[in-house]
Write a protein that binds this DNA or RNA. Structure first.
Lengths: 333, 333
DNA sequence: TTAATTTGTGCAATCGATTGCACAAATGCA
DNA sequence: TGCATTTGTGCAATCGATTGCACAAATTAA
């Protein structure tokens, strides 16, 4: 068995309390005692038992990650793993641990949430997506459990969140296209249960409006699931109606599908823009322009907000907006 | 504050030990007492504190995941997140929790490992890759800590591991190509510090040998990092030497790069095969044939092995071999 | 009817830390 | 020198569970 605080105390000829204080770097410990204890710690290769400490502290320093099962592109989109690394990097810095759980079954996230919080296993949560009427958010709010949402929630009041400025990001994309002379621009977007989808659509509309271009609802495909085949179908519906000079999408996967439809049916070039800048955007034919959303920084900031809250820091803000960057490639040249 | 076992005991008019026994479903509790206690539990919405339980049990039911930082394709290859979901699914079934940690710095995995194990935070580990002379494996073996390795380790003796049969998988690919009439087949493979790379190369060589085709070392590019640009460069080196009729690679990313080189330089068609069957293989031009390695099942089995070990089951085997499947697409037609 | 066994429950120690409070020794101040 | 204050350490309770052991009551056997 490995050494406990009592063993250290015995070797250093002090009490366990003193050892504890040395570890916590309490100012009331004399230099000599501190040295003695530190030597004993080294000698025994002692490491505090985190579980015992957690029990005494009523805090585990564990963050729970709720990964949505609805996101069909979990595997195709590096978004989640990027967020997860961002979270991990900040958490490490602050000595926090991360727990995750994933389920294929619909709406099982709430089960984890309850299990983790009821059993006092985690100090707080990060939700990797926020849907409309999210049961998880509801539960966490009701129980006053600390949490951060990735993606702007319905009700931003008293909720901590991180997101991009999706309105602005899409506005800029469409604005750039218009500047290049495009005036017939189609839109393929995801389910409206995500604010992100709505915001990007609004950005699109606003840009058209500002430039005095009429919004044609038949050029707008909404509520499209984030899969290539749905993007493919949506693009075909648009092409059946009219051939646009450009298409913007709210996800690279949609763009991949759309590109396929275009390549199959149309000879002339249609400008196309993805979103999220997945690593393989550059390997499309033509290489796909896309908007980098900086997912890792989203995760990093989410962890920052949550840990700040957990440590009772005076938070200067309840959210972070992470910059996006429109990466132009051949698909818009 | 939420209810503790003492509160339940008080309400049910029994001792905490009895409550504990009811929860553990001990056979020595009478039906009436059990009912009383269960009612009290419901009434108070009591949930056992996992931390306290862990302390008493000297076991946390937490599994630690060591994610390699060397894998440059962490974001590009869904391999890791697929493994992670497989692990999660089995762990949930068995009531285990999962902790992960990721660092960008070289060789920091061992730090987590030591931290997690010394502080008794996790019961065991799953290493998501195994390199040659892996410090982590060394440490875990020395300290007799339970762990499972994804990917066959150097020394399979007394180590639990899961892997595909990489030799066989590549053998079959090359065999299939030869059956189709190819005889000039190039090979682009990853670093030899991974057994997987070596096995796939051996499978390639064996298939050639069996069919009486000479092995031409100039057609073999080894030690290529798992990036598209390295694949691109490797392919160009091969093309500088000779134009093969087919190319096999040990990773889709390498294949993507190789494909690009081919498309840029050569008019004639060269058959090409990737590995790992990433979701976007199908979106290459032409759609890329690849080998599906069933990463989720690798993860699932890794968790199974580890948890079996942790629960002192008599393990019938120290490893699992997960089936692969050669998915043929246009790139080999 | 009595002794032996089984059944059901509680006591108290334990897991390995933290921390408020008490108190002796050392120091400061007049 | 004498008293007040500061400094450094230990005692013991606590966090919230689990579990070996003891033992009374109920049951069975003789």
């Amino acid at each position: 068995m490995s050494a406990t605080i009592k063993d250290v105390a015995r070797i250093a000829k002090v009490s366990p309390s003193t050892v504890s204080r040395v570890i916590a770097d309490s100012p009331r410990i004399s230099k000599e005692t501190k040295l003695k204890v530190e030597q004993a710690i080294k000698e025994l290769n002692y490491h505090p038992n985190i579980i015992a400490r957690s029990l005494a502290n009523r805090s585990t320093k564990i963050i729970g990650l709720i990964i949505p099962n609805t996101s069909e592109d979990l595997f195709k989109n590096p978004f989640f793993i990027q967020i997860m690394t961002g979270i991990s990097i900040y958490a490490q810095k602050k000595g926090y641990y991360i727990m995750y759980s994933y389920s294929k079954k619909e709406n099982e996230e709430i089960k984890f949430l309850k299990n983790y919080s009821n059993s006092k296993l985690v100090d707080g949560f990060i939700l990797l997506t926020s849907k409309k009427d999210d049961k998880c958010i509801e539960f966490l709010k009701k129980n006053n459990y600390p949490f951060v949402v990735v993606g702007r929630p319905e009700d931003t009041n008293k909720v901590l969140w991180v997101d991009n400025d999706n309105f602005k990001a899409m506005y800029e994309v469409v604005d750039t296209l218009i500047q290049k002379g495009h005036s017939s621009i189609a839109f393929i977007g995801g389910p409206k249960q995500f604010n992100m989808s709505k915001d990007r659509l609004e950005g699109y509309k606003k840009a058209l409006e500002v430039h005095g271009i009429c919004i044609d609802n038949k050029m707008i495909e909404q509520e499209v699931n984030f899969t290539e085949s749905c993007g493919f179908d949506a693009m075909n519906r648009i092409l059946n109606y009219k051939i646009p000079s450009a298409v913007v999408t709210t996800d690279d996967l949609l763009a991949f599908g759309a590109l396929k439809a275009i390549n199959e049916r149309i000879d002339q070039k249609i400008a196309i823009v993805g979103f999220n800048n997945t690593p393989l955007a550059v390997y499309q034919n033509p290489p796909l322009s896309s908007v980098d959303i900086n997912a890792e920084e989203l995760g990093y900031n989410a962890a920052k907000l949550l840990i700040g809250k957990l440590e009772n820091e005076l938070l200067s803000t309840n959210h972070y907006i992470v910059d996006t960057k429109f990466i132009e490639r051949e698909s818009t040249i």
